[in-house]
Computed example of a mutant assay.
Amino acid sequence: MPASGQVFRDRVKLLVEKVIAEMGLEKRFRVETEYLSPHGSVVRDRDRRVDVAVLDSEGRPYLFIECKWQTSSGTAEDKLFRSAEEARRDRIFGVHSVVVLGGSGFNRKVFRWALTEGFVHETFLETWLREFFGR
């Protein structure tokens, strides 16, 4: 992951930890980065590392968060389609899954598609997390 992508992932992780702590859920959940998914990859026949994983108190995956950062037109847009498939598969296996978009470089058409697929823009992530964990 490029440096700016790592910074974005780390910001997302810190925000998830903050929301969990403020909601008093730190005994129920812990947060890890670069988590090796027990489901592998739906697209490639190999391992898959999830950017941010929220695990329950027994260490089972509860929420997977993929972070996609884009400052200019490029490969992250192509990877969005794979991310959508991975998120669908996670849900089939009973793990909540969301893709978070960051940066201003996404093509408008691809960006709108991503939002209709349930992706979340970083601007709305804190609100999304509070609603998700509050229900």
Rank of each mutant, 00 (worst) to 15 (best):
A53R: 11
S41F: 10
L55R: 03
W69P: 00
A21K: 11
D45S: 12
L14N: 14
T127C: 09
R11K: 12
L101K: 11
E66A: 06
R89W: 14
F29C: 10
V19L: 10
L14E: 13
E122P: 06
V98R: 04
I65S: 00
W69L: 01
V42H: 11
S83T: 06
L63P: 07
L115F: 10
G40M: 03
E131H: 12
R130Q: 13
V50C: 03
A84L: 07
R30W: 04
W69K: 01
V120L: 05
E26F: 13
K27S: 12
E32H: 11
D45H: 14
P38A: 01
E122T: 09
K68D: 01
Q6S: 02
T71R: 05
L115A: 04
T116S: 13
R44L: 10
L15T: 07
V7G: 02
E58V: 02
D10Q: 09
L14P: 04
E86N: 06
A53C: 08
W69M: 03
S4L: 06
P61G: 05
I65L: 14
A84F: 08
V120G: 11
L63A: 04
R44H: 08
L36E: 13
R30P: 03
T116H: 13
G59C: 06
K68P: 02
P2Q: 05
R108I: 12
M23K: 14
D56G: 04
A114C: 06
P38D: 06
V100N: 12
L63G: 03
V31L: 13
F81R: 04
R46S: 07
I92F: 10
V54K: 09
V43N: 13
H96E: 12
L25F: 15
F133I: 14
T71A: 03
F119T: 09
L115I: 15
R46Q: 12
M1N: 09
V95T: 15
T123R: 13
V42E: 14
L63I: 06
S104I: 14
A76V: 13
F124H: 10
Y35L: 01
G24L: 15
H121P: 12
H96L: 09
H121N: 14
D56T: 03
K79P: 00
F29D: 02
W113M: 01
Q70C: 06
S72Y: 01
V99I: 14
Y62E: 01
T75C: 04
R88F: 09
